[in-house]
Design a protein around this nucleic acid. Sequence first.
DNA 1: ACAAAAGTGTTAGGCCTACACCCATGA
DNA 2: TCATGGGTGTAGGCCTAACACTTTTGT
Lengths: 230, 230
Amino acid sequence: MNELNYCYKYPHPAVTADCVIFGFDGVSIKILLIQRGIEPYKNKWALPGGFVCIDESAEECARRELEEETGLKGVTVEQFHTFSDVERDPRERVITVAHYALVRLADVVGGDDANAAQWFSQTEIPALAFDHDKILQLALERLKERICFEPIGFELLAEVFTMTELQNLYEAILSIKFDRRNFANKMLKLGILTEAEPRREGTARRIATKYKFNAAKYAELKQRGFRLEF
Amino acid sequence: MNELNYCYKYPHPAVTADCVIFGFDGVSIKILLIQRGIEPYKNKWALPGGFVCIDESAEECARRELEEETGLKGVTVEQFHTFSDVERDPRERVITVAHYALVRLADVVGGDDANAAQWFSQTEIPALAFDHDKILQLALERLKERICFEPIGFELLAEVFTMTELQNLYEAILSIKFDRRNFANKMLKLGILTEAEPRREGTARRIATKYKFNAAKYAELKQRGFRLEF
DNA sequence: ACAAAAGTGTTAGGCCTACACCCATGA
DNA sequence: TCATGGGTGTAGGCCTAACACTTTTGT
């Protein structure tokens, strides 16, 4: 079963799909890495991902590999760049379609098989296999750009969250501090948040108002040509 | 020379790089297509592009194919999406890294060999080979998004242009009408335009002021964290 | 002379930013 | 009681959008 059974008239590159998975712990952005069990780069940390099968799209591959390697199921991944430099992989020519996804930290079941999947803060990231450092850097840039124009941040928070949590998230991603009142005003004015529970009257002044992301309202606004900007 | 000399343990897809080339004739956006000389889809119109060689990146391939098929040299192309659906090509599994570029219409020398390269308005686009309709649609969307945040429009105009020409370009891409004065104010306030020639005094009131894009100033502003928005 | 293009300013409303004090809770 | 976090409003500046008339030139 080690034979070279698949033959072509011209050389073909191999194609992989890799995933940059972002999480948020309330303070900083985290990235999910796996430790490689095989050569090359054995024992090095790397982005989850693997070879695209002949009967699946890159996105399907990314989701499949993500589940196999980290236990994450049903994650919405989005491709952001294809890395096609010639010398990316010592074994053979490999082109990678890189994806990113935002997940709630709590959803990661932890390495359900031997694969060590682990969350890292941006400051703790070890040297990565292949050109995964480069892929990660670009993913971070895209995340910053994206969160200004699409309500992707909510995917990182619990379904119900406080304004402070949301602000912390924006501040962590963009590395900017916002004024508390201005942030809340701006965010509420967008009209895509709903108060999750009726505020309690009288007594509880200290308990923060809880919000939910209102996906239906966002979809409606977007259809009308509304452009989110932050 | 028809032998299958390149063999792998697992099946490999072929990878192509295709280009959506935009031009502007002063009124509408144009797209450069080539007529295919070979099967499949022989005689159909298609995006310029071709198979990525084993020793070149997707971007290098896009530029090479562009020159071979349309005579356009030294164009800056940018990838915008990778199309990896399984049934894209009847011959074999083909994954395409799609690129776009903006060029001045005048720069296209015209089909320098037998390849018929021709500009089409959006409304005249014929049925395209493969899934190139889909690729083109996405490129148009990206162009719209992009022009709001990056000064890419200038690549479509002559080096020196009038405010009206620039406005026509924005209106053509975004399908929006702007107020003449507001458009000019907003654009000038960005600080990335330079008057190209000193205005003539006295006599010529009717002759429009000519501008140039000031790339140096834009680079400087951008480095300071300035974000272009339109 | 007529049509087409270009030059020119103002106003009102909305949005952004910066900023300070009080109250409730938990340690 | 003290530190922390949350709730709340305003004023000034800037940007935006809406809007009309005049001049020049080419036909």
